[in-house]
Amino acid sequence: MLNKFTNSRPLMAVAAFLLSVTMVAAYADDDEHEGNERSMGSERHASRSADNDDEGRGGEGSSSAVSNAKWKEECGSCHLAYPPRLLSAESWRAVMSGLDKHFGSNASLDPVVAAEIGDFLEQNASTRKHRSSNGVEPPLRITDTRWFKSEHREVSSRMWKNPKVKSPSNCEVCHTRAESGSFNEHDVRMPK
């Protein structure tokens, strides 16, 4: 009996370690550069994408490599998987609680998967005030936030109506590296 325990303990440790490795959804910080609300224990992690060229400048458009396989698969099947840092935790909670009526589409998920994705989104959400909107709170759309409107104040209304754009929600039409989470202004290509 004793023998069994001494033998299995290191193995259990290995198993626990393997489990924890698969569960770490590389925590990266919010992409924010003003104020010092980030100063508490949110150092930039090595997991940030290596080709991120605005490291240090830390603009809104910098990419962070936070990822989660279920999020990528489930939230990236109908549109770009919008990075968690673009909405507040309250907004994500509201989005996740209405998936059966999701912007005119049924995006319902199995509750276990939904809970995992919800945790991932909330843990990596933005903590900034201007992820709020001037309308219904919390906003369900990134494109309704004051932040989004201010970043795009120079985009003309004609551009938003371009049939190639169709909807401001289609980030990847203009942000060529949106798929990898990068919205850097240097990667913007406006469609003709």
Binding site: S77, C78, H79, L80, F103, S105, K166, S167, S169, N170
Partner: peptide, 12 residues
Amino acid sequence: PAATGKHAKTDK
């Protein structure tokens, strides 16, 4: 159905 489709709302 053998061709690549396109999401009617998002164009994905």
